[in-house]
Design a protein around this nucleic acid. Structure first.
Lengths: 181, 181
DNA sequence: GACGATACGGAACGGTGGCCCCGTTTAGCA
DNA sequence: TGCTAAACGGGGCCACCGTTCCGTATCGTC
């Protein structure tokens, strides 16, 4: 690969990371190109579609989350492992707008994330720390909404409040009240 | 007003109700026109913008919700009044895609809804049924996303589970566990 | 039945955004 | 330094959508 090609590819990835983080998947490809100082044609030389570029960007980032989730899969406290990871996801989502978009796009890395989080969720449920009858898909659907809201609010306090609602809602094991088993 | 004009206006409103309910604000105006059996120009003869048409559609529907919220404002059980209304909103959102879009568009009827729900929320908080430090804006910002998710899932069970998580999360008054005051 | 005002409808406009083409530039090698 | 393949880049195509324009049809009245 020619040196200038590699340089431009790297620039495009850096620009895409920033642009997606700021505005999510909705950012126009031309803006990414402009930010990278190249033409749109050059972007398409390196990535066949906008979707492929997005995959490339989130793959490297989500890989770290997957690793962390797997690490926690053997923690003694299954509840803490799950909720700690949830907090991590929340922080990620508050900082980067594309986290929300990433939650539900199809692709290998997201499949891995779903699977790894599924393990944490199941363990937490078996330990009685999370309500039963909630699936991994439920969780990610909820997260997609939550993370988009959290980021768009731009208000850190609101983000923390919403995450607390989700966490406590997941903890609740009965329909209501402190009397549950 | 000429008879044909009135007839078309009614047809447009009916078509818009159905189209917005099915696909939300994103539905193309041309499709609404086609569904009503008129041209796009005719739609614009009756409503200055797509936004105005949307307002007309949601105003009649949200007015019912506002009335219901106000009715509940004097219920003895402030918690039940609030959560019952939340369930109502959830059902509405699951059935009609535009409920989500309506939550945050500017306009008089939505301002009324915010205010009426704000009363329910405050009363429920004062009664200790809902965690403090949650604002009406928090609630609606989040509902906008969540209702869209609930509708798009198309799965009634999932929708109920997601709403249950939200409701229980709002109920929780302490950081964790059944030991809270 | 004819006429004027009103309403109709669809073609056309302007803007946006993903994606491609191709004339031009440049890297890398001999 | 000269040459060729690779890469560049931005103008342009296409599809979509909100909105407008205007020639035509229709209503309702005289």
């Amino acid at each position: 690969m020619r040196a200038d090609a590699r340089r431009n590819r790297d620039r495009i990835l850096v620009a895409a990371r920033e642009a997606f983080a700021g505005a999510g998947l909705a950012v126009p490809l031309d803006e990414i190109a402009a930010r990278a100082g190249v033409g749109p044609g050059t972007v398409y030389r390196h990535f066949p579609t906008k979707e492929a570029l997005f995959q490339a960007v989130i793959t490297e980032r989500v890989a770290g989350l997957v690793a962390e989730a797997r690490r926690r899969a053997t923690d003694d406290d299954a509840g803490e492992a799950f909720f700690g990871f949830l907090a991590l996801l929340g922080a990620e989502g508050a900082a980067k707008r594309d986290t929300s978009d990433a939650m539900t796009v199809p692709g290998p890395i997201i499949a891995e994330l779903h699977e790894a989080v599924g393990v944490l969720l199941t363990r937490a449920q078996d330990a009685g720390a999370v309500r039963p009858r909630v699936t991994t898909e439920d969780l990610f659907a909820f997260l997609k909404s939550l993370l988009a809201t959290v980021h768009d609010a731009g208000d850190q306090d609101r983000g923390e409040r919403l995450l607390a609602i989700l966490a406590d809602g997941l903890r609740a094991t009965g329909p209501r009240g402190p009397a549950a088993a």
